[in-house]
Design a protein around this nucleic acid. Structure first.
Lengths: 344, 344
DNA sequence: AGCGCTCGCGAAAGCGCTTTCGAACGGCGG
DNA sequence: CCGCCGTTCGAAAGCGCTTTCGCGAGCGCT
C-alpha cells in the first residue's frame, strides 16, 4: 500500500521559519549553536503547523529509537499488566513508545523477542518476570543482550538476576519468609507449597524463603510437600488437587503467586474444603483484585506498578558505571484466607 | 549515545551473494523479477549471516511500518489486558510489533495518541474501548483517523462505532437486556444501575439495553435509578454508596462493567448488605477472575481475547470496499451474586 | 539477418532526519 | 586597518532500505 509523501517535513517547518534544515533540526532538538530568538521562532512555527518528526528517519539518522521494548510473559496476567501499566505511564510522560512482546514463559521465545527488539534498534529493553535457571538459554540471551548494551542500549530487568543490568528486585525470599512466618504463628505445622516451574528464578527464590522460615522454626524441610505445576491459576488448581490427594493432613498452602492461589482456592471450593477453617491459603504479589476474592486473599504485597515505573526510570537515567539495584519493599497483607490452624 | 554502525546491512548480504543491493532487496521481499535460483541463494546467505533488516530504514523508504498501534484506556484493567493479550498473540504469529498507548479514558489524550501513532507511520491502529459521544473531540479524532485511512493505514475498533473502520462489536445492548431479564425473572422490580460516564458509548449502549428490558417488562423506566461514577472499581463503590443512600429499597444493582461490579460488591460488604439475599449484583464483561470473586459474579461473558484477535486479523486482511463488522456473541453467566428478590 | 519483445538485473534517486564541516559575520586586539 | 577568533548558520553527506528507470541479453517473429 503506497503511502503518499509525508504530510509535513522538517524542511517545511524550516522554510516557513526562514532557516535551513540544519538550524531547524538543532532548534527542535534543543542543541546549541542557535540563537535563542531563532530557536524560539522555529519552535513556534513547528507548533503552529503541528509538526511531528518522523521517528523512523530520526532513528535511522541518529542511531537509537525513542522506543522501549517491554517483554512480559503474558500481558493478560495481572502481575504483568500492572507492571506494564507503570511502564506505559512513565513512557507516556516522556513521550516514549512502548512495544510489548510476549515471551510466554518460553526461553526460546524470549530470545526471539530480544532479537526482534534489538533489530528494531529500540533504546531500552525491559524484561519483566523471572529468568530461567536453564543455563544454556540464559547464556544465549545474555550474549544477545550484552551486544545490545555494548552498542548503547539500556537494559533493565524486573524480578530476575542479570549481570550488568539495572534491576528492580522484589524481595522474593524475604516475602516468602514473612508469609510463612505468618502461617507458623497461626499454629500451622503441616504446610504445603504450590509452586511454579522450579527453573523460574522467582519460584526458586520464593521457595527458598519458605524453606528458610521453616528451618528457622525448627521444622525439617526435606519433607516439605511441594506441588509443582504451571505458575498460573490452572496450575494452582492442579497443585491443590495433588496436595489434597498426597498430603491430606495439610493445614496451610502457600501458593508462590496469587494466580496459583486463586487456582488453589477454586480447587478447595470444588472439594468443599472450608477456607480458612480447615485450610489456610496464602498467595504472593497482591494483584489488584486479591482483596475481592472469596475469601480475601492473604498475600505479600509487591508494588507492581511502581516496579514498572522504577524500571523504566532507572533505565532512562544516564548509564552508571555499575548497574543499579533497586530492592522493593514488601508487606504482609492479611485477609480472610488464612486463619488459626485447626485444633486437629 | 552514539551507536556504532549497524551490524549487518543488506549491502553486506548482497555482496556476499554476488548480486546488487536491488536484487537482494527484491529477493528477500519476495518480489518477482529475480530468478528463483538467485533468490534462493540470497535467502540462504541472509539466513546464514543472521541478517535482520532495519525496520526503520524499511519504513522510511517503503512508507508503512509493520507495527500495530493499540490504544487502550488502561492496560492494567483486565478488560483491556485480555483484549491486548489477543492482539499481541496474533501480532506475534505474524511478526508484527505492538505498540501500546494509554488513552486513560481521556478524549484529548486519545487524540494525542492517535497523532503519535500516525506520526510513527504504523500500518495498523486498533482502538479498544468506548468512544466518546462528545462530538467535538470525536470529530477531531475522526479527521485524524480518516487521514490515516486515506493514506493506506488500516483501522479497527473494538466496542465503539466508527464510520469506515472495521469493527468488532460486542452486543452491549443485547447483553444488558439479557442480564436485566435475568434479574426480572428472579422477581426483582426495584433495580438500580451503576453506570460509567454516559458519554462513553459502551455505557450508553448498555444502559439502553437495561432500559429496553425494563420497558418490555412494562416497568416505567423514567424512575430507573442510575448512579453515574467512574467506570472503574472505585466508581462502583461510589455508585453503590449513592444507591444505598438514595434508593434504599433497591433489590438489584446492574453494574455496567465488571470493574464497577467489584466496587459495588466491596461497598455492599462494607455496609454488611448480604449478597445476593438482600441485594443482587450483576456485572458485564466476565473478566477472567469474575468467577473467583466473593461471591462469584453473575455477568455477561464477552470473548475478550477473541475480540482482540479478531480485530487485528480483520485489520490485516486486504482492505474491503466496505468496512467489516464482526458482532461477538455474549452469554449470560449466572454465579452467586444474583438470587431471587427478597420477599419484602 | 533484423526487428521488437520480454525478462533479469543494476545504478541511482529518494524517504526525512542528524551531524560534520566549512563559510560568513561581527567583534576584538594589535 | 588587518588578522584572528568565536559564534551562528547552511550545504551536503550519510543512515539502510525500496523503487523507478533503463540497459543488455535472449527469444520468437518476419
Amino acid at each position: 500500500m503506497p503511502r503518499p509523501r509525508s504530510r509535513l517535513r522538517l524542511a517545511d517547518v524550516a522554510e516557513r521559519a526562514g532557516v535551513s534544515l540544519t538550524t531547524a533540526s538543532r532548534a527542535l532538538a534543543g542543541r546549541d549553536g542557535v540563537r535563542e530568538e531563532v530557536a524560539e521562532r522555529v519552535r513556534r512555527i513547528s507548533r503552529e503547523l503541528g509538526y511531528v518528526a518522523n521517528p523512523h528517519a530520526r532513528t535511522l539518522a541518529g542511531g537509537t529509537a525513542s522506543t522501549v521494548g517491554l517483554i512480559v510473559h503474558q500481558i493478560d496476567d495481572p502481575y504483568f499488566s500492572e507492571i506494564a501499566g507503570g511502564v506505559v505511564q512513565v513512557a507516556g510522560e516522556r513521550n516514549l513508545i512502548v512495544q510489548i512482546c510476549h515471551s510466554g514463559r518460553n526461553p526460546r521465545n524470549e530470545l526471539r523477542q530480544v532479537r526482534h527488539l534489538v533489530a528494531q534498534r529500540v533504546g531500552v529493553i525491559i524484561i519483566a518476570g523471572s529468568g530461567y535457571v536453564d543455563p544454556r538459554m540464559e547464556a544465549e540471551a545474555k550474549a544477545e543482550l550484552s551486544v545490545f548494551q555494548d552498542t548503547g542500549g539500556r537494559l533493565a530487568v524486573i524480578g530476575r538476576h542479570f549481570l550488568n543490568a539495572d534491576a528492580v528486585r522484589p524481595d522474593n525470599k524475604g516475602g516468602a519468609e514473612t508469609i510463612t512466618g505468618h502461617l507458623l504463628s497461626l499454629g500451622h505445622r503441616r504446610i504445603a507449597v504450590a509452586a511454579g516451574d522450579l527453573l523460574l528464578s522467582t519460584v526458586a527464590d520464593r521457595l527458598a524463603g519458605v524453606v528458610a522460615a521453616l528451618e528457622r522454626a525448627g521444622l525439617s524441610s526435606p519433607e516439605l510437600p511441594v506441588a509443582q505445576a504451571e505458575f498460573t491459576r490452572d496450575g494452582g488448581r492442579v497443585a491443590a488437587e495433588r496436595i489434597l490427594r498426597d498430603h491430606p493432613d495439610t493445614t496451610a498452602i502457600v501458593a508462590l503467586n496469587d494466580a496459583m492461589a486463586i487456582g488453589v482456592l477454586s480447587a478447595l471450593r470444588a472439594h468443599r474444603v472450608p477456607v480458612p477453617h480447615r485450610m489456610s491459603v496464602a498467595g504472593f504479589d497482591d494483584v489488584s483484585f486479591a482483596a475481592d476474592l472469596a475469601p480475601g486473599l492473604t498475600t505479600v504485597r509487591l508494588p507492581l506498578a511502581e516496579m514498572g515505573r522504577q524500571a523504566l526510570s532507572m533505565a532512562l537515567r544516564p548509564p552508571a558505571a555499575r548497574p543499579r539495584r533497586k530492592s522493593t519493599g514488601h508487606a504482609l497483607v492479611v485477609r480472610d484466607s488464612t486463619g488459626p490452624a485447626p485444633s486437629q
